[in-house]
Each structure stands twice: as structure tokens, then as C-alpha cells.
Nucleic acid binder design. Structure first.
Lengths: 161, 161
DNA sequence: GCGGAAGTACTCGGATACCCACTGTCCGAGTAGGGAGGG
DNA sequence: CCCTCCCTACTCGGACAGTGGGTATCCGAGTACTTCCGC
């Protein structure tokens, strides 16, 4: 029940991408260097985002990634599901069907009480992430990180693109 | 972000254990056979429950497992954390500290906005499981499973213990 | 001086090894019940 | 007939292999800029 590192990397990268206008593409090399992570592995995560239609890519010089939608339209759940997959955290194997006393084999079977609770918990987790948009994160970052630091970081990218 | 099979197995076993009075110990062999799972591997999960003080064990003939507390005092979160560990689903690696423009190395550092959302989601997940007690699951099972089937299952255990 | 074409360097993308943790299995330590023997 | 002792069988507990997914890496395909050459 642990998320991979790619999730954190990806979320930070999405935050960075939101700094730049639509005609600027940020290469993965810079994103990796800025965050101090391996470029090749980060690339795999960004590929999945591209496959999910969250970012768009451009190849060649001056190429890179940019947001495909406005931050208000991108929920954190979208990002995380694109990277980690959409399957629920709990997968019911229906072991209650193995009960030797169970004669109702294959009849109508409502969701088992245990699975129901697990799904409810999973839904609560997803609900928080679904309601939180990328724009919410950006707003919070702007409120907590000094403007000077943000401007310097933005400049760091612009002078290298 | 996927829970292991042991979680489902363990929850079903806890439900079964709640059927019997305090002086009856249910051996892992029967629990495994009843649910159609491997005995040895289920044993490992039950060991962790014992280590967490959720069940108590008795060795030797007529030995086995029984609940250490009443179902009202056992939350699903306890059970799951005993099996899967207590660490959060999201582990912040603080990659923002790798920002080459970041001069504030080692100063006061509030939780990063991204990690805050992830922790919030993790908390929502845990909160559902924490508020759901084993007794709630048992009540729901009694309401959905035919009483005849429950009695037969209980009898299946008693005639083998 | 200008236009076009070739070369170059930079980007992403897919295919390929590595490694840890979940999964699955085995044997040994300990105990409680049952049975046999003696009083 | 009853008590005691020993034995057996059953339980849990920890230690030991196997395997799949996340992790890390490499090389190839494609493109836009740059530069050089010809007009």
C-alpha cells in the first residue's frame, strides 16, 4: 500500500510546467536536473502522462513537455492514476465462495461486507484527490513559497530552454 | 498502491473468530481450509495480528487463535496496519530540496503543498477504516448472509475443533 | 546577398536488465491431552 | 478404582526459496535548428 516515487516526481513536474505559457516546452532533462532525479526514469512517468492526455510532447530541439489542459481541469487523481494505474487498492478475491458450507454457488451475490468497507475507504482516498485540482496546489505553493524563490526557479528554466 | 491478499484473508478470519466464545481457540489449519487458502502463508499474517495484540494464541492440541478484545474495540485499521505496516501510502522524499535555486537549506520547512494533499488523502482512507469496527462488519454480515448459512458454517468449525 | 539542402544535435519513445518485497514453503520448539502402568 | 507419569500428536513460530512488479538503464527514431554551398 505504498505509492512509487514517480508519483511525487510527477506532481512536482506538473507544478513546474504550470509556470510556463503554452508555447514553451520544458524538456525532461531540465525537469530531472531541477529535481535531482534520474532523467530516464522520470521520462517513463511523463510518457504515461502523455498517454493519458494530461501533457503533450514535442520532439527535437526546443522540444519537451507542456500541459495539455489548464490547471483547473487537471485533478491530482488523474495524474496519480495515469502513473500508478486505475485499479482499486483492494482487490476482493471472493474467498467467501470457498466456504465449504456455501451452497449458493453462482447465484446473486451482493458485495461482501468486508469488501464494501474497503471500497468505501478507497473511494474516500480517491475523492480527496479527485476534488483537488492542480490549480489548488499551485495556489498553495504561491502562498507558502517566497515569490523571490519562485521567480529564480522560473528564471533557471528559461535561461536553459 | 495495492494491498496484499493477506489483508482480505485476515479480515475474513477475524470475522470467523468473532463467532466463538473466549474459551474456544480456532486453529489456523481450519481457518485456511475454510477459506480455501494456504495454511502456512495465512499463519504469517495471523502471527502479525498476535504481535499487535489483536488476537491471542494457544499452542498444542486444542490450540489456535481467538480474539484478544471485543469486536467493538477492534478497528479495521488496526488489523490492516498490523498486516501491512503503519507507514503512509505516500512518502515524501523532499525533492524540492534539490532545487538548485533553493538557498534555504535546512531552515524551517513547512510540509510541501503536494505532500500535504497526499497526506490528507491518506488520512481520509485511514479515517474510514479507523471508524469502522469489527463489530460493524459482523453486524452487516448478519444482516446480509442467511442465518442458516451462518449456523452451518459455525457448526462446521465446532465439529472439527 | 539569398535560398536551399544537408548535417548535427537535441528531444522523446520503446525495449532491455536489475533488485527488492510479496508470496509460498519447510522444519523445529513447545504444549496439552490421552493412554498405560503401578499403587 | 484412582493417581501419576510418559508418550504422542497437534499447535504455533521462525527460517528458508521463488517470482513478479517497481526501479534503473540503454539505444534507436524523429525533428528543428544551424551551417555550408551554390546561384
Amino acid at each position: 500500500m505504498i505509492l512509487g516515487n514517480q508519483v511525487e516526481w510527477t506532481l512536482h513536474c506538473m507544478s513546474v510546467l504550470s509556470w510556463f505559457p503554452e508555447d514553451v516546452a520544458v524538456p525532461s532533462k531540465l525537469l530531472a536536473e531541477f529535481h535531482g532525479v534520474r532523467k530516464d526514469y522520470l521520462l517513463k512517468a511523463l510518457q504515461r502522462l502523455a498517454g493519458a492526455g494530461i501533457v503533450v510532447t514535442t520532439t527535437g530541439p526546443k522540444g519537451g513537455y507542456r500541459l495539455a489542459k489548464s490547471p483547473e481541469e487537471i485533478s491530482l487523481l488523474e495524474i496519480i492514476e495515469a502513473v500508478e494505474g486505475r485499479q482499486s487498492s483492494f482487490h476482493c478475491q471472493e474467498i467467501r465462495k470457498n466456504n465449504p458450507c456455501n451452497k449458493t454457488t453462482g447465484q446473486k451475490s451482493p458485495v461482501c461486507s468486508i469488501a464494501a468497507v474497503m471500497y468505501k475507504a478507497d473511494h474516500a482516498w480517491r475523492d480527496v484527490l479527485k476534488k483537488t485540482k492542480l490549480s489548488d496546489v499551485i495556489r498553495d505553493v504561491n502562498a507558502t513559497v517566497p515569490q523571490k524563490s519562485l521567480a529564480e526557479s522560473k528564471e533557471w528554466f528559461l535561461e536553459r530552454i
